[in-house]
């Protein structure tokens, strides 16, 4: 398979890896953003907590998520490697003056990528690590089966532990059921009462926006997708979906909780 290693180690091959992993991460962002919209549902976090259980237990999703972690690492590794190689290609002396005719974000993908890597580490230790290995409290929801509405909630004691992430049982009255689930929602509520963290998340989303406004279009170009008929579509998706809609949706979440916290 020397041709394959040769291809992937060429300048275009390295870019191809960054582009393909990047595009995968883009699709992940769409899924992640849509899923997290559950946060905005006013059911005291039931839908969100259930979604979290689904995402962490479904075997297919779990497999993909390990792929995702790998892709993040590959994307970051190759990104940094390219930045290093490209810096070396520049030679030993820098220009005294640069008046570059390209966009700021296109020139600073590695910087933005570093910001995003830090963001991902903070974000995962804040939620993913807490959820998996931390001591999240459990919450029980009582649901009216006929109406489908939450009729009662109860925070379980701090030392309450389940063997699984969720337990569901039909109540004796046969009209309601109770769900006991790890409460990531409250973790989000608490975390985003901290204005510094909110600010960190908003800035993180600015970085996402800047990274993707160049990244998506650049990935298409690297794949050779450049055609006068379809370029407007690529531009539209790159700008409106990845650089505006998704970062705004994500940024809205911490802000939403922070505003809620202020109003309490």
């Amino acid at each position: 398979m020397s041709w394959l290693t040769q291809t992937l180690s060429s300048s275009i091959g390295k870019k191809l890896i960054v582009a393909l992993t990047g595009l995968f991460l883009c699709t992940f962002l769409i899924v992640h953003a849509v899923g997290n919209l559950q946060l905005f549902k006013s059911d005291e976090g039931l839908a969100f907590n259930m979604y979290t259980v689904f995402m962490t237990t479904n075997p297919l999703i779990k497999t993909i998520s390990y792929g995702l972690y790998a892709f993040i690492l590959i994307h970051a590794f190759y990104g940094f490697y390219l930045a290093y190689v490209n810096r070396k290609a520049r030679g030993t002396t820098n220009y005294a003056r640069i008046n570059n005719q390209s966009s700021w974000s296109s020139r600073n993908m590695a910087v933005l990528g570093t910001v995003l890597l830090v963001f991902i580490i903070v974000h995962m230790s804040e939620f993913w690590y807490e959820y998996k290995f931390g001591h999240l409290p459990y919450k029980s929801y009582t649901i009216d089966l006929a109406q489908g509405t939450v009729v009662n909630t109860e925070n379980m004691p701090a030392d309450f532990v389940l063997n699984s992430k969720m337990e569901e049982k039909l109540n004796d009255d046969n009209t309601t059921k109770t769900i006991i689930v790890k409460d990531l929602y409250v973790e989000a509520q608490e975390a985003f009462s901290n204005p510094l963290l909110v600010l960190f998340y908003v800035l993180g989303m600015v970085a996402v926006s800047l990274h993707l406004i160049h990244g998506f279009r650049s990935a298409m170009q690297t794949l050779g997708a450049n055609h006068p008929k379809y370029n407007p579509l690529f531009d539209f998706v790159g700008v409106w979906l990845f650089a505006i809609l998704i970062p705004v949706a994500f940024a809205a979440m911490p802000i939403y909780f922070f505003v809620q916290h202020l109003m309490q």
Binding site: S11, I12, K15, L82, N86, A89, S102, S106
Partner: peptide, 11 residues
């Protein structure tokens, strides 16, 4: 030759 890789900046 030691040229860098294109990152599509367009400069």
């Amino acid at each position: 030759e030691g040229f860098g890789a294109c990152t599509n900046t367009g400069a």
